[in-house]
Amino acid sequence: MHWWFPGDGNAYSTLGGKIDDLFYLILVIVSVTFVGTSAALGYALWRGAAIKSDEKVWFSHGSHSLEVIWTIVPSAVLLFIALYQLDVWAEYRMKGFAKEKDGSPKVITVVAEVTARQFEWRIRYPANGKPLKPTPQPDDIYSVNELHVPTGGLVTITLRTDDVQHAFFVPMLRVKQDAVPGKMIPVWFDATMPGNYEMLCAELCGWGHYKMKAMLVAQSADDFEAWKDKASADQFDDGYRKPAE
């Protein structure tokens, strides 16, 4: 059914399924509209060809009722879409800010700072057990073109760019967000299954745009912590090995 979607067609995030549903809804609406208007146009042409030359022509231009109909019907459809998608949009872009149900402020743990630059993704993580600070810290962990995130819950990244506009795009999670120079943009998403997902730049950012391919590695929380420990050990390696005795 979803064969035209990226990867195996399934969305690997909670919100992804809802985004797919919206896609199908809009697809159905535009299909009906397209087929309907095409049929009407075809009918008009066919009818027009059959009109005898001595018959009087009827002009619809200036018809008040027609104008009202084709203003109200599309407006209603658009309004419906606007209202219907509101929940998904809010969940994607705003609910991360909202308070918990009991009124306490929602705690946002930022997993990493993702910085796009021509033509790669550079990523900075806080050390295990520490929050991400806006400025680099001595024990931060760095990776490039490989974003590790834990599964099983909402994760947040801070999206930045070093140079021009880029867009953070993980097709299989249905996440897309522009990176704008001078801004630090929070992006929320979750990965329902551990695995490797393609991570791309979705904004033509220069001649090497096609090179900006990276990988999003979703791991269980334990694996994620273990990976961070290992990455940290590698990063602070002093190269000294005890000689074998």
């Binding site: 021509q118 033509f119 790669e120 490039v144 090179k211 900006m212 990276a214």
Partner: peptide, 13 residues
Amino acid sequence: YGIPGTYMPSFLL
């Protein structure tokens, strides 16, 4: 891993 601070990007994949 590329060279940070230059235009040599990472070709990790």
